[in-house]
Design a protein around this nucleic acid. Structure first.
Length: 410
RNA sequence: GGAGAGGUUCCCGAGUGGUCAAAGGGAGCAGACUGUAAAUCUGCCGGCUCAGCCUUCGGAGGUUCGAAUCCUCCCCUCUCCA
């Protein structure tokens, strides 16, 4: 089997490595690696997909991934790459979030029979004694060096609390703990974690005299310079309750042309030959590649069935013929028959159904010609919609070019 | 603890008594063009029962016919000093 390091490198996962040759060597045999995830929300979002995919590759290549939930460190707050301190969370929130995250990761990773592990660093960090920690761990860190770290430099401009300043030590301690208890010799993470990862390898060297490694991923931005996973509605979540498979699919199909090949490599498991072939398509043909990207990405996250549904719904809505809006994957809003019978102004319906956040927004949208009913443009913002507008028992609303909402009567 | 600077609408950032829902830029949204892409042009961009009304300029009071702008107290951030 191909060495997973080469595979990760080829697919674009690698930004920095502590030592290319040694990491390659380490991964020749089954090894253990870890990535930390912050339990700051009850669901992960697309921004976490890159690290998740790297673990998927690791597991598929016979290695054992460890997912560390930063339950302990979340109580402190990581300053890396942020301009402001993070709000501190309660233990209950963190527990709750950790549960949701494990559920999601189970779609990507096999946690059975110890093939992948999930641990919470609160389990060992919470017990630490301050004096012991200072004496055993703190002595190995040079403040001068820490201050030189890029992640702290930024914060020195705006202010860095002592509590955050300790984050690096805690993360280093995590790595050491995992090394000690699970023989974990590789930590991966976003490039903003480089300093923290190095601190860990440094600590292991000092305490155990052994070499551990670090690898970071490129900080992903779309070609238009945006952070991954942001849309007008906010983050794109992996939880189908928060972002439906249809919306998830749409997110991927709407990617910039320039990102398609890169994303196929990172976010699907398609062989690289296929990735390159699809990436080479030009002009309108590239849409085929986007469809593959959207389908594969949705399949990984939500399963084949939902992915197919999303694909069909998309084709129906964006295909040649005006929509019959068949597929069950299109978001649906329910309204009482009686209420619709009385008639409801278009802009209010747009707001109620969730297509617009406020009535003012809906007014504007329709006034500017961006509101559609069953494929036809709505002329006046207060045009009354009632039972006569039903087609096959439902209404199809559209906001702008791409956002659809079915309104069903109940 | 002392001295100075500052907290404005999603972000950056103008605004120092009425003409301010607040310049400009960015982001975002819509229309045209297209390929559910990008670029470009145009319009929008606090809320509402929308020719009017209501709520915003760190917080609470006050002065005034009228305050984001003036006064008082408080909170927070940054820089320098201790």
């Amino acid at each position: 089997m191909e060495n997973v390091f080469l595979l990760l490198e080829e697919r674009g996962f690698v930004e920095q490595v502590t030592d290319r040759a040694l990491v390659h060597d380490l991964l020749e045999r089954p090894a253990t690696c870890y990535i930390g995830f912050d339990p700051t929300a009850k669901s992960l979002h697309v921004g976490s997909l890159l690290p998740i995919m790297s673990l998927v590759h690791m597991q598929r290549s016979g290695h054992r991934p460890i997912v560390v939930i930063g339950g302990g460190t979340a109580l402190v707050g990581d300053p890396s790459g942020k301009t402001e301190a993070r709000p501190v969370m309660t233990r209950e929130e963190i527990e709750e979030n950790a549960k949701g995250i494990k559920k999601q990761l189970s779609r990507f990773l096999d946690f059975s029979h110890g093939r992948a592990l999930m641990v919470n660093n609160a389990d060992w960090l919470a017990e630490l004694k301050y004096i012991d920690f200072l004496r055993d761990i703190g002595r190995h860190f040079s403040v001068n060096r820490m201050l030189a770290a890029e992640s702290y430099k930024l914060r020195l401009q705006t202010g860095l609390s002592f509590i955050e300043f300790n984050y690096m030590l805690l993360q280093a301690y995590d790595f050491w703990y995992l090394f000690k208890h699970y023989d974990c010799r590789l930590q991966m993470g976003g490039n903003d974690q480089w300093g923290n990862i190095l601190a860990g390898t440094h600590l292991i060297k000092r305490l155990e005299g052994e070499v551990a490694h670090g690898l970071t991923f490129p900080l992903l931005t779309t070609s238009s310079g945006e952070k991954m996973g942001k849309t007008h509605k906010g983050a794109v979540w992996l939880d189908p309750q928060l972002t439906t498979p249809y919306e998830y699919y749409q997110y991927w199909i709407n990617q910039d042309d320039r990102d398609v090949e890169r994303f196929l490599a990172l976010f699907t498991l398609l062989p690289m030959d296929e990735v390159r072939r699809l990436g080479a398509l030009q002009g309108a043909e590239l849409r085929e590649a986007k469809e593959v990207l959207a389908f594969e990405a949705t399949k990984l996250c939500h399963g084949e069935k939902d992915a197919l549904e999303a694909k069909e719904a998309s084709r129906a809505l964006f295909g040649q013929k005006e929509p019959g809006a068949s597929g069950g994957a299109v978001p649906t809003f329910r309204i009482g028959k009686e209420e619709l019978g009385k008639g409801i102004p278009a802009y209010i319906l747009f707001e109620r159904s969730g297509l617009c956040k406020t009535r003012a927004e809906a007014r504007r949208l329709i006034a500017q010609g961006g509101g559609y009913l069953n494929g036809g443009r709505i002329e006046a913002f207060d045009q009354v919609i009632n039972l006569r507008d039903l087609k096959d028992g439902s209404l199809l609303l559209r906001a702008g070019k791409k956002r659809y909402m079915r309104v069903a009567v109940s």
